[in-house]
Write a protein that binds this DNA or RNA. Sequence first.
DNA 1: TATCTGAATCTTGCATACACAGCGGCTCAA
DNA 2: TTGAGCCGCTGTGTATGCAAGATTCAGATA
Lengths: 226, 226
Amino acid sequence: MISEQEGNGSPLLSDKIRLALADEITSGALVPGTQLDEQQLGARFGASRTPVREALRQLAASGLVEMRPRRGAVVAEITVARVFEMFELTAEIEALCVRLAAWRMTPQERSTLRQLHEQSRRAVEESDIDEYDRLNWLFHDAIYEGTHNAFIVEQAKALRERMAAFRRAQLREATRPAHSRHEHGEIVEAVLRGDGEEAAKLMRAHMFHAASAFDRSTCVLENDHN
Amino acid sequence: MISEQEGNGSPLLSDKIRLALADEITSGALVPGTQLDEQQLGARFGASRTPVREALRQLAASGLVEMRPRRGAVVAEITVARVFEMFELTAEIEALCVRLAAWRMTPQERSTLRQLHEQSRRAVEESDIDEYDRLNWLFHDAIYEGTHNAFIVEQAKALRERMAAFRRAQLREATRPAHSRHEHGEIVEAVLRGDGEEAAKLMRAHMFHAASAFDRSTCVLENDHN
DNA sequence: TATCTGAATCTTGCATACACAGCGGCTCAA
DNA sequence: TTGAGCCGCTGTGTATGCAAGATTCAGATA
């Protein structure tokens, strides 16, 4: 949604600031509720208030900060309850995608999906978490694309992007990648059979397990603010 | 997503400009591809470039305009195909909401939903399209809230807001409100039974019929631009 | 002592000014 | 005549200044 610049070489200050702030917020360096003072941020980034303002507006659109007119911006309060609500929608969207994909994917797309799944075997065996993470994203991407609906693809990716911060820790659990891959395997089978409803059900379960892993993992959000 | 201010009395210029531009774009007064010159718009609204820029950024976030760095903003090209893709996701989201709502609504919420449905009878009988439209929105709102998931409520409302432009014409068809209400009735029954899957199926059909009505109605988008 | 009031201060919202990136037209040469 | 390179213009990106709303804190009053 937010103009994720392709590799074009225009180093817009507002973009740099936006990315830096987004990183600090999602990594937890900036705790929820923190007041984001424009000129203070401008000083930190060696810029004037103008690009800072642009950055804050865009972050507000993506939900990372909250803006109250004439009262400035604060890092959005994200409670554990809210993260689970976000997880629920993510799971449902993923389920919806795989249901459509199971019905609509071309033979070639199905083949690609299976290949992606095969490739992940090595990453699991070698406990290469980063590689598994990469393949995991590609796997879900392939399913999004399988819907043959560009708008759904966009929205799904935007939602996943927004969730990225909270899913980071989730694969650190030693046994999670193996479980995850097993679940992927069942999903692939359902997709190859063209059984959309079953694939959706499996995907929902898959996402639920991922959320549980998140729940058990060290959690950035230790207390409810609301 | 975009800060829909509650009735607070601070009339930010950028908000006024954003709303005005959004209206002109969705109504078709500004055709896709139109260059949006900042100082020209500023002159039109009696404002400087600053609030215009803010408005354009926010419109870009909601997908109505497209921004290319250092090349300004243009009204986003929206093809008929894309509108149907958006309709599909909307239908699926509505279906998802009603499925969850059928399982989670409190007795009181179910009662409210039925009452809303009853109220709409008069609007249909009197062919009061505006009133039916209003009750229609409240009906869908009640279903969103029935998910008991604030994040889903937000996202669903944001999506509906984005679709509003294309759904405007859809109820003008003389027979559509009656059909719409009949479909609502079936959905209400399924919800009251707690049959989420059936409610979802009915909702998908309901949205599909709405999309068809849109298709038949005079369409802002008469040709494919891509 | 607690609460209300109002003025000082801070921060945002907006206007204006300036610098540089695209682009369009022009000239000039092949 | 056509293509390449140069130059000026338009318009965006950024900086800064000003005014008004919001916050805060001191002082007065109950």
